[in-house]
Structure formats: structure tokens, C-alpha cells
Amino acid sequence: MTEDIIIFTGSFGSGKTEIAINQSLAMLQKKERVILVDLDIVNPYFRTRDKREKLAEIGVEVIAPEGEFALADLPLISPEIKGSIQDTNRVLFIDVGGDEIGAKALASFYTVLKDTGYQLNMVINPYRPFTRNSEQIEVMLKDIESFSRLKINGLISNPNLEKQTDLNVIRKGHEIIRESAARLNLPIKYLTIEKSIYQKIGQQEFNEKIVLIQRFMELPWEEPETERNINKNGREPKD
């Protein structure tokens, strides 16, 4: 199975965009060419394309609707996406829109992806309204698979209540993902914890791999950490 096409799907607001940005930046340490595709046809705000310039400066190529359509609330799919899938000289991350509706956009690449292979991950935050237990998660997973025509081959556990996240919140939420993994017979690829929260709760043992992430989509009243975060994680800007 290909390791260089990594797709993030999941319910609306499950954390796909943040994880996709974090994983693309981490990949820069290993691979020369990293492409991040913003395939979000659902969200009008908080999209990868909002961070495009900064990401490009660090070395992540972002593919998203451009120019006069970048800010439109239209379900646009960039023509470069298909080319980026067929290109082999790169690692490709695809950030898909939420729910089965968002996953529908993936179906347009079904014919290419079935030949190239892919890693299709479902990001789950059990504190989100429609993925609160393993029954609901199964319904969401089946819907995403049927709309995208692709098979999900791993779960990413992202249990959080943003600033109210503590160890108990992570443990209780992660347990639901474990139940789902057993029910669906799928691996948990990793558990994501926000770096600042991990520092607060101290080192913890989980059976699964832990991936620390940093938030990039800040709110206007929060300290603008984005630039610092990207510079810290990314490669030195090329001159």
C-alpha cells in the first residue's frame, strides 16, 4: 500500500485540517517535496487555504481554489489535484471536507486513487455531535466510504474539548476510539494531543503512538502563535 498519498477524512470539525497541516510540516523533515491539497468543499472559514502563503514559504505546496474564487462559498475542486496524485515525486496530503458530503469530493478521484493506492484515515473526535459513540462512528464511517467510494484503512484518535482538554477528557474519549477500532477491525494509527496540553498533563503512556500537534487556526482574541509555530516546525525558508 502506498505510503505517500495520505488522506484525512472524518466528521465535520473533527480536526482534519489541523492534523493535515501538522503532518505536512513534519514530513518536510523527511521528504523534499510535500504537497497539501485543500479539498474542503464544505467549510467557509478555517481552511488550509487561509494559511497558504505561510505554508508555501516554509516549503509546503498548497493546492486550493485560487484567485477570485479562493474566498467564494462554492464547492470548487482545483484542476491540479489529479496531476498531483499521478505525480510520484512527492508526498501528498489531502485534507477532505467534513462528513459524507465533504467526502463526496474524493469520489471524483476514485479512478486515479484506486490505481495509485492511498492511506485513507478517519479523524475522530468523540466530543463532536455525530461521532459520540462507536455506533455513531460506524454510521459516519460507512457514509464516508459510500460517498467517497474509497475504503478507510485507519483511525486517528483526536479526543479533545479544545481548551478544556485534560487527561481525563483524552482517556475517556480515546476509549471510545478503541471500542470503534475493535468494532470496525481497523488500526488506530495514532493518538493526537495538542502540545501545550501534553506539556501540562506530563508524559503519558498509551498503547498507541502519540503525535503532538499544534493549532494553526487561531481566533482573533488568541495570541497569534501561528507564524512562530510554522517556523519552529518547518524547514528554514529558502532564499
Partner: peptide
């Protein structure tokens, strides 16, 4: 099932 939820304003 968890008691607190992480919600978008519109969903709330």
C-alpha cells in the same frame, strides 16, 4: 457517550 461536547456555534 461523553457529556460535554465540542460544538460549532451554529450547531450549539
Amino acid at each position: 457517550m461523553v457529556d460535554r461536547l465540542l460544538m460549532r456555534g451554529n450547531e450549539a
